[in-house]
Design a binder for these strands. Structure first.
Length: 845
RNA sequence: GGCCUCGUGGUGGAAUGGUAGACACAAAGGACUUAAAAUCCUUGCCCAAUUGGGAGUGCCGGUUCGAGUCCGGCCGAGGCUACCA
């Protein structure tokens, strides 16, 4: 009777139709309300993985739904195309990184298209294209002028075998991931962006981001790490041969100053450098500390220096070099109060330093109070602290600060953990940094008229070092002002630089200028941004910084790039190991009745459910799924079970379940359209209508709340109801069609191809995607409600009533029920609580 | 160590303080079929075995007519971050 649903044919057809009719191409239209949907753009690593499918399916629901709600929707796509994997692959495959990248882009584009996404492909960008990166070279020059970009010395992970710099994640147990060589900390002069100049604004603006997960906001806020404290200048009592005669220390606990028993400075501190110049033992100690081995032990080196206690006359504190003091935070020096800081306590015990308790916890007696091996960090009152005795911590802080200021040896200070963004990468496949070094040592920015500084064409990459350093014809230039000899910067930008502004470029991807104000002002901010939590800090923080920096250099008028953010969970899969303990993939597994084996019949060990990864081989290729079951099935499954923010376990049975659903809907449609359908004489159209309207309401609410799994549950309910209605023939044909029409519309964001197919089969005009989102009529369609009769909060019976029934009527009926009567027996009724249309609770004495 | 999130059937998961387990997956039984696939129906903790009754949302306690939901304490899992003074 029914021809089988041919997903391949159907999906191809509608994808072509959408493309031909340019359904998803958008332009600035000030008469229409805009909505900008964006998923984090992919790195063109080879082919699409399930994580991409989930990310883009989620975004596609938003995009299609908003379009149907009448918004002018922009939903673009591009490629985060610079990066290390291209270089590595190029070395292996003996290709150029560019060739490898563009090949991947072409494959992945066609894969994305097969998912049926509502993308405006005319806006596509690839960040490795000079027309893209020339603009960021220009931004950089402006940031340089504004002193938001600067150069300083900084450490990098250096692989001495591959002659290359490694990212932190490429250093495994202190060794290079490819060469296995012991990694060194090498100091290089590198470019930085002054993100720290925006610490306060980046922190404050988090409050405005109402549509961000609070988790991400907390992570960013912790990362920025604002703390209120004091800088204290300790006078060095014996500063012989030193460049300075005081030691500047940052603390958030000035109240514990009377408990101070030592000072410690970072091994990178200027005073430390002064010392090691003359002291071989100190030098040896510093060298030990800089080795990468992950030592948790606190180590110090006692210098001959002493500082004077600011409030206790003649009290001198020894100064240590210490491996646990960071140069990057505060002033790179601390005073240690062992009694109330665990780190200081461990250090004090090791080097036999004084431990003076100065905070007394409530209820403890001063005489018996002793600190042994656990520092006390809680509330309390000051003791052993001269003019602070008896004060509470917060009051003591105020008093100390006042005294320090009076004595001109200290000041309030706000500190941020956020550090400046190190931009330089000693890599080939990135955007060249547009500066040159003149032979007289001057750093010369490349004039804007000479942009872009293009990467040279290379046929293949060698295994070590940065190729740019070896290409003399590219590297050797002359100064545009003086004509003197100069050499180009061979470092390239961190690829986070490209991803910090791509969402702006989508507005005018082909314009000769970086931005067209009118379009930026119309489209930005991004209304809904969707991606993985792994970018919660770096990418999102850099992007926020970038927008502010571009605003302050006059490019745009925007404070925050992303109005709404949604972070989706990972796609996971069961892992398997064969009898040799090798990981094997799901496609090599055979499920038998009693056991699971590999395709040679050997028993398989079933492992944990983990994120899909090549190393564990627990990967399912989206292309295979789409080929076998269709894009709608893949989308439906990926959206159906788990809430989008949680991890999703990919299961074969779940996919076949979704496939069954698609076919079931199709079969119902055929049944309903067939001439065999004749309604019986007891039809009640109101029931199906009511259910349909409820579904419209629920699906809509759940889409708005990002609860797609619940929207899908609502649709299942309606389909189940429709199926019963059809088999009972209890509704008119027109009413069935009416319901199916709504189903087509409600399915559009989830299974767009099936949606169009239903729409067409019902003989309706146009495309489903071009219709308005359905609205449930406000009239009451439900007539009956079920009210639970409870005794002492326990449900004893459920009785049906008309909607709007009064407490009195329910009470009479409830008390007359045989069962309830029996349960009440001779007990007295204390009170009766009534919740309209839900519950009546009879409370007994 | 710090911060955050989460503990509900065999599984994924539903439940504005108001009928716990919607919806789906898996399983078992059945119908159709020579058979299989596909499809459809039923079942789903314990005791009574038809009607009922009881336990029950990690553990202990509290607030409430009523707690998976709110409060306090404990246990467990996961994530992020980490010598940040």
């Amino acid at each position: 009777m029914s021809s089988r649903y041919n997903h391949k044919k159907v999906e191809r057809l509608w994808q072509q139709k959408w493309e031909k009719e340019k359904i998803f191409q958008t332009a600035t239209d000030k008469n229409k309300k805009k909505y900008y949907v964006l998923e984090m753009f992919p790195y063109p690593s080879g082919k699409i993985h399930m994580g991409h499918v989930r990310n883009y399916a989620l975004g596609d629901v938003v995009a299609r739904y908003k379009k149907m709600c009448g918004f002018n929707v922009m939903h673009p796509m591009g490629w985060d195309a610079f990066g290390l994997p291209a270089e590595n692959a190029a070395i292996v495959a003996k290709k150029s990184p560019s060739e490898w990248t563009y090949q991947n882009i072409n494959l992945m584009r066609s894969q994305l298209k097969s998912i049926g996404l509502s993308i405006d492909w005319t806006r596509e960008i690839a960040t490795c294209h000079p027309d893209y990166y020339k603009h960021e070279q220009s931004f950089f020059l402006d940031l340089l002028k504004k002193e938001l970009a600067y150069k300083k010395e900084s450490f990098v992970n250096w692989d001495p075998v591959d002659q290359t710099v490694l990212a932190n994640e490429q250093v495994i147990d202190g060794k290079g991931w490819r060469s296995g060589a012991e990694i060194e900390q090498k100091k290089l002069s590198q470019w930085f962006l002054k993100t720290s100049a925006y610490s306060e604004e980046l922190l404050n603006c988090l409050d405005q981001l109402d549509d961000w997960p609070s988790k991400v906001k907390i992570m960013q806020s912790n990362w920025i790490g604002k703390s209120f404290g004091v800088e204290i200048n300790f006078k060095i009592s014996n500063p012989q041969n030193l460049n300075s005669n005081s030691l500047n220390v940052f603390t958030t606990r000035p109240d514990t100053i009377f408990g101070a028993s030592f000072c410690a400075i970072s091994t990178d501190h200027p005073i430390s450098k002064d010392i090691i110049r003359r002291d071989e033992v100190a030098k040896k100690f510093v060298k030990e500390c800089s080795s990468l081995s992950p030592e948790k032990e606190k180590k110090g080196f006692k210098t001959r220096l002493f500082v004077e206690h600011p409030f206790i006359e003649k009290k001198l504190l020894p100064v240590f070099l210490a491996n646990f003091v960071l140069m990057e935070y505060g002033s790179g020096a601390i005073f240690g109060c062992p009694a109330h800081d665990q780190r200081d306590l461990e250090f004090a015990i090791k080097y036999k330093l004084e431990i003076i308790p100065v905070i007394l916890p409530e209820g403890k007696s001063k005489d018996k109070y002793k600190i042994t091996n656990e520092a006390y960090v809680g509330e309390g009152n000051l003791i052993n602290s001269s003019f602070l005795d008896g004060e509470k911590i917060e009051d003591a802080k105020k008093i100390v600060i006042k005294k320090l200021v009076e004595k001109k040896i200290g000041n309030k200070k706000i500190n941020y953990r956020l550090r400046d963004w190190g931009l330089s990468r000693q890599r080939f496949w990135g955007c060249p940094i547009p500066v040159m070094y003149r032979e007289d040592g001057e750093i010369i920015p490349v004039p804007k008229r000479d942009l872009p500084v293009k990467l040279p064409n290379v046929k293949e990459l060698s295994g070590s070092g940065n190729v740019l350093e070896k290409i003399d014809e590219w590297r050797n230039v002359s100064c545009p002002k003086t004509g003197m000899k100069a050499k180009r910067e061979t470092d390239t930008f961190d690829t986070f630089f490209e991803s910090s502004w791509y969402y702006l470029r989508y507005c005018n991807p082909r314009d000769l200028n970086a931005f067209v104000k009118e379009d930026i002002n119309y489209w930005l901010p991004v209304d809904q941004y969707i991606g993985g939590v792994e970018h919660a800090i770096l990418h999102l923080l850099y992007s926020r910084f970038f927008v502010k920096a571009l605003r302050d250099t006059g490019y745009i008028e925007l404070d925050e790039p992303f109005k709404g953010l949604f972070t989706q969970g990972m796609v996971t899969h069961q892992t398997f190991q064969n009898h040799k303990n090798e990981w094997i993939g799901p496609d090599e597994i055979i499920y038998n009745k009693e056991s699971i084996t590999d395709n040679q019949g050997n028993k398989v060990k079933v492992g944990k459910i983990e994120k899909m990864s090549k190393s564990k081989k627990n990967i399912v290729d989206p292309s295979d799924i789409i080929e076998k079951y269709g894009a709608d099935t893949a989308r439906w499954f990926i959206l159906s079970d788990s809430p989008p923010e949680r991890d999703l376990e990919w299961t074969e049975s779940g996919v076949t379940g979704s496939y069954r659903f698609i076919n079931r809907v199709w079969n119902l449609l055929q049944l309903c359209l067939s001439d065999d359908y004749i309604e019986n004489n007891k039809t009640d159209n109101q029931l199906l209508r009511g259910k349909t309207n409820d579904t419209i309401k629920n699906v809509t609410n759940n889409i708005n709340a990002f609860h797609y799994n619940k929207s899908i549950a609502n649709l299942y309910e309606l389909i189940n109801f429709l199926q019963k209605t059809i088999s009972n023939k209890s509704s008119s044909k027109n009413c069935l069609k009416e319901s199916l029409k709504n189903i087509a519309l409600l399915l559009q964001p989830f299974t767009p191809h099936l949606s169009e197919e239903i729409w067409k089969s019902l003989g309706l005009d146009g495309l489903a995607i071009n219709q308005l989102w359905p609205k449930a009529p406000t009239i009451q369609t439900k007539k009956i409600c079920k009210i639970a009769i409870q005794i002492d909060g326990k449900t004893r019976e459920i009785i049906e009533f008309d909607v709007g029934i009064s407490k009195e009527e329910v009470k009479i009926k409830a008390l007359n029920s045989k069962k309830i009567k029996k349960m009440i027996d001779k007990k007295l009724i204390k009170k009766i609580i009534f919740v309209p249309e839900k519950i009546i609770n009879i409370v007994l004495k």
